[in-house]
Write a protein that binds this DNA or RNA. Sequence first.
DNA 1: CGTTTCACTATGCGATCGTATTGTCAAATT
DNA 2: AATTTGACAATACGATCGCATAGTGAAACG
Lengths: 209, 209
Amino acid sequence: MTNSTNRRAQRREETREKILTAAVRVFAELGFEAASMGSIANRAGLKKALVQYHFETKLNLWQEAVNSLWEELHSLENRLPRLAEVSTRDEEREILRQVFRAIIDFARSHPDWVGIMFREASTPGPRLDWLVENHLKKDIEEGSAFIALAQSHGLLPQGSPLHILNIISGALTYPLLVSPLTKRAAGISMASEESLDATVDILLNMLKP
Amino acid sequence: MTNSTNRRAQRREETREKILTAAVRVFAELGFEAASMGSIANRAGLKKALVQYHFETKLNLWQEAVNSLWEELHSLENRLPRLAEVSTRDEEREILRQVFRAIIDFARSHPDWVGIMFREASTPGPRLDWLVENHLKKDIEEGSAFIALAQSHGLLPQGSPLHILNIISGALTYPLLVSPLTKRAAGISMASEESLDATVDILLNMLKP
DNA sequence: CGTTTCACTATGCGATCGTATTGTCAAATT
DNA sequence: AATTTGACAATACGATCGCATAGTGAAACG
């Protein structure tokens, strides 16, 4: 592979990434059906035909965009504090706080992930099937395992880990999801540092000590 | 007004309601942009032009559909157990359980409301502005007031009622929102009676006694 | 009974959708 | 230097979008 071979390949990769970045944003904001190839091309500052050249169909573009998004984020669990390495109850509670912070920080710094995730998760169909098979199944399994571990440490009550995962995800993610509403109705920005702190604090205070 | 005058008015009202019912469903499932006048007409078993005849524009149809939905549901608070009339701590905790059940039952039996609500609440724009001004502002105020009341009874921790409202709404609503995902990934139906019970139980068990 | 009203249909407009085809021109290969 | 490759653009296809206009026919009215 000469230097010149790379020149074209590099340019190709650059535009592909431009398109994928724009696609992730638009899909997250509008959902699959409402997002259009043209709007994605405009967002990337490119021509519609070029998008179709690099990613043949809209569905394929969506899949590749989702793949690149998951690849970029890798996995939330990797950043989770290690629950197994603590012992005393006080330390465990501090770990729980850090876990909540990690989840909520993740949701705030990756609104595209939240957008695509919850839009597809709430509508049955082939895209959800694909998403589950290729990404979410593993994520859910890891999340459930983490919950089970926290349960074994007495940090969370008994019950299906999947249910608890949903409850905690909802308690921490939903406020960010509807933050445009909160902003409009009460003038409060849920993505602000104070609001994030407040949300974690409140949730911790609600839990048994 | 004779009997015959009513015949036409009644038929008019019948088709209008058919259209509104279909519109609520389609808007909730697909969101505003992805929903089309044609698909709504098809869902109602009518012609597209007839939809346009009764509700001139798509935006107007959406607004009237939302109005009819809110009108049908009236208000969640009306069905909430009266928190102010209890005294002992045990009774209060039972009230809290009933409140949670009321919220989660509401979300389950009105998926259209949840769908429209969370789709619009997560995207800034003129429709969210309209929704806030005409319905959600009042709903949020009533919900916050209820949280504040629960706080004064020592049932919920201190902190912004709005934050707590979001946390509780998320914890109870999110599991139903992503139930298609849970169904696909784990084969569990979150809308089942057992799952609802489990969700409420877990959330209550997580709270301080 | 003749006339008016009105719920509803047929048809078509321009715009945009996803997709396909063909052309262009610089870079890479031989 | 001649030739092939490939990133990208121009253009067009049929379908569907929201919306507008001109009817049609039965119910309501005088």
